[in-house]
Design a binder for these strands. Structure first.
Length: 648
RNA sequence: GCCGCAGUAGCUCAGUGGUAGAGCGCACCCUUGGUAAGGGUGAGGUCGGGAGUUCAAUCCUCCCCUGCGGCACCA
């Protein structure tokens, strides 16, 4: 057999007989490396130590210190170890698939009775036994008939189906962890003992559809998380705790911002402080839109089905729409209406009033449009997913040639808004033409290129999601990253060649003929509700001063200071601040604690000393130290600090 | 919509086949206290809704609603 030349990361070459395994290469390098080795990279591919190498290659041997490969393998092997543990305990459970995901893995099982939280403890214990046994991992390539016969004999129908769906030119690989066998593309560790036994945890059980298809059986999914060592696991568990502390549903209740109740599921009851945040954000957005040449409009909530039929919503979107009928006793004619789930058809109606000229384009019509959508009840989630929400929506009517400039203008607006609201960076995703679509290829070419060019004018990295565009046009989605690294999709920019056609929008061109405008659907925040939820979680309730619903509390230390406190509050309110007095018969300790817990950014305490010197003692949220300032100085200082970022 | 879990005072939660309890909060009283909880007294619940089993249901059974964790969905 011929030899192969392997090039190591340090540039040196070693020659082996063809078919050598990465394990043998590691062994050749050093005894200790061969023990520590977990996998290899061979010509860029993640490679099992047992797989043969049949051609010259660049090779690197990995140990647990190589983050990417180590995490991949630890999690992947744990998926197998968990499945083995489950079948050890309950032999009749059917196995399906168990991929690696962010922070861990899951495995889906078919089992008559769901797993209980106590079962997780049992499984975890069994997994630790398997790890302690240091069972060797072994792999073989099987041919299809053998694999299918094997799984049929075992009564594992899901595996049979999986084999059927694997492309014919791909080898079928079997893996054994000890005696337990699973179909798997690999790679895997050398033995189960290479998994750190104290750095994983089974997290939860949940139902999940087989192959993600809601018409197929519901399986039982167990989620686990795993890291390279116990500290990393701890760090992750702390992160989860941190995320829970930031939960906007909890903070919304604690800070008295909003509530939900059974009579209106998925619809927000905004309380005064929550609504203050909302209004501050809305005022800010209105200024931004005005600055960028948008005209604000307002369109009806309840609209006859005829319009929804014309727009296509009645056909494509009806199960998400609230349908209303006028009470027949009071109406001469029975009309079927729908609460608007989107603003676009109404905006076209505004555009269609009167005759539009090319001189009117681009026409930017904005609406803080309240929409109702009947979302599946399992989808509802605090402010993040609601049934009644308000979009910072706008539709830009323009020519195809104007798409690029409008897109660039939009990205500029969006960057400003995200920066001003405290989000440093955002990612862009371009979704291109789907298989089922309207419009000619030329128009799609033009639209996709326009969006692409607009992105490239501000940055050179973006993700492309081929085929994921809307049927009416390509779109950009904007995802921002919050303070603890979570991504939220908020902004969107969509080119639409369809709706103007359906709703017969047109303008008179330079040639005196009628033309179809393109319609650009776009939103920066997405919905106010959701964006405020994200803000709350991003800031853990400690809102930036300009948007904080309660900016200043002036607290009396003794009742002697009450009148002075009132004077201070008046002065602050006069400067436009949201200030309130706390004159309650409580000690200053109590007041400081309560307002700190309520995340009021500034507490001004006033006792006899302050009254005498016409000053206040300032305590800022998150700081222990206090300072004393004159009344005039603090009013001036806080007045400046309270300006919205665009008004500084 | 699907799988699982849950719903008891404003909040967090305990509890029992014989119609309920704590802490915090709230009200009132005492206390005028200098930067994260001063003390006392008191009010407050049709135990998510409906039906059933039972002498008796907050507790057991069924249906529904809502919430939570996922899945599916997310123009």
């Amino acid at each position: 057999m011929a030899d192969v030349t392997l090039t190591l990361p340090d540039g040196s070459n070693r020659v082996f007989p063809a078919g050598v395994t990465a394990a043998a290469v590691a062994e050749d390098i050093s005894k200790s490396l061969s023990k520590k080795a977990i996998s290899a990279t061979v010509n860029g591919a993640h490679w099992d130590l047992q797989w043969p190498i049949t051609a010259d290659a660049e090779i690197a041997i990995h140990t647990l210190k190589d983050d990417v490969q180590a995490l991949e393998l630890i999690r992947h092997d744990l998926a197998h170890i968990m499945a083995r543990a489950v079948q050890d305990i309950w032999p009749d459970v059917k196995v399906t698939i168990g991929p690696v995901i962010k922070n861990g893995w899951y495995y889906d099982f078919d089992r008559a009775d769901p797993f209980s939280p106590e079962d997780l403890g049992l499984i975890e214990k069994k997994m630790k036994e398997i790890i302690a046994a240091r069972d060797p991992v072994r792999t073989e390539v099987w041919d299809r008939p053998r694999a299918i016969a094997h799984y049929k004999a075992l009564g594992e129908p899901y595996k049979v189906e999986l084999i059927d769906s694997i492309p014919g030119d791909e080898p079928l690989r079997m893996y054994w962890h000890g005696d337990w066998q699973d179909l798997c593309r690999g790679p895997h560790l050398q033995h189960t003992g290479q998994v750190p036994a104290d750095a994983f945890k089974l997290m939860s059980v949940a139902g999940a559809y087989w192959r993600g298809d809601s018409t197929r059986p519901m399986l039982q999914r167990i989620y686990g998380v795993a890291f390279q060592n116990r500290d990393e696991l701890k760090k992750y568990l702390n992160f989860l705790e941190e995320a829970e502390k930031r939960d906007h549903r909890r903070l919304g209740r604690e800070m008295d911002l909003f509530h939900f109740q059974d009579e209106a599921p998925g619809m927000v009851f905004w309380h005064p402080d929550g609504w203050t945040i909302y209004r501050e954000l809305e005022d800010y957005m209105r200024r931004q839109l005005t600055r960028d040449g948008y005209r604000e409009i307002r369109t009806p909530q309840v609209v006859d089905r005829k319009l929804w039929e014309a727009s296509g919503h009645w056909d494509k979107y009806r199960e998400n729409m609230y349908i209303t009928e006028i009470d027949e006793e009071h109406a001469n004619e029975k009309r079927v209406n729908a609460l608007k789930p989107m603003n676009c058809p109404c905006h076209v109606q505004v555009f269609n009033q009167g005759i539009k000229s090319y001189r009117d384009l681009p026409l930017r019509l904005a609406e803080f449009g309240s929409c109702h959508r009947y979302e599946a009840h399992g989808a509802l989630h605090g402010l993040m997913r609601v049934r009644n929400f308000t979009q910072d929506d706008a539709h830009i009517f323009c020519t195809e040639d104007q798409i690029e400039a409008e897109c660039a203008k939009f990205i500029d607006l969006l960057s400003r808004v995200y920066t001003d609201t405290g989000f440093g960076s955002f990612d862009i995703k371009l979704s291109t033409r789907p298989e089922v679509r309207v419009g000619s290829d030329e128009v799609w070419d033009k639209a996709e290129q326009a969006l692409e060019k607009a992105i490239l004018s501000i940055r050179n990295d973006y993700e492309v999601d081929p085929g994921e565009g809307a049927f009416y046009g390509p779109k950009l989605d904007f995802k921002l990253t919050d303070a603890i690294g979570r991504e939220w999709q908020c902004g969107t920019f969509q080119a639409d060649f369809n709706l103007p056609e359906r709703l017969n929008a047109n303008y008179i061109g330079t040639d005196g003929e009628k033309h179809r405008p393109v319609m650009l659907h776009r939103a920066v925040l997405g919905s106010f509700e959701r964006f405020i939820g994200i803000l709350i979680e991003n800031y853990a309730g400690r809102m930036p001063f300009w948007i904080a619903p309660r900016q200043v509390v002036v607290a009396s230390i003794t009742s002697e200071a009450d009148n002075y406190v009132r004077e201070v509050v008046n002065a602050l309110q006069g400067a436009g601040l949201r200030a309130e007095a706390d004159l309650r018969n409580e000690k200053i300790n109590f007041k400081v604690r309560e307002h700190s817990v309520a995340k009021v950014p500034v507490i001004l305490a006033c006792g006899a000393r302050e009254v005498d010197t016409r000053s206040v003692t300032v305590r800022r949220l998150g700081e222990k130290a206090t300072s004393t300032e004159t009344l005039d100085a603090i009013v001036n200082e806080l007045g400046i600090a309270a300006r919205a970022p665009d008004l500084v």
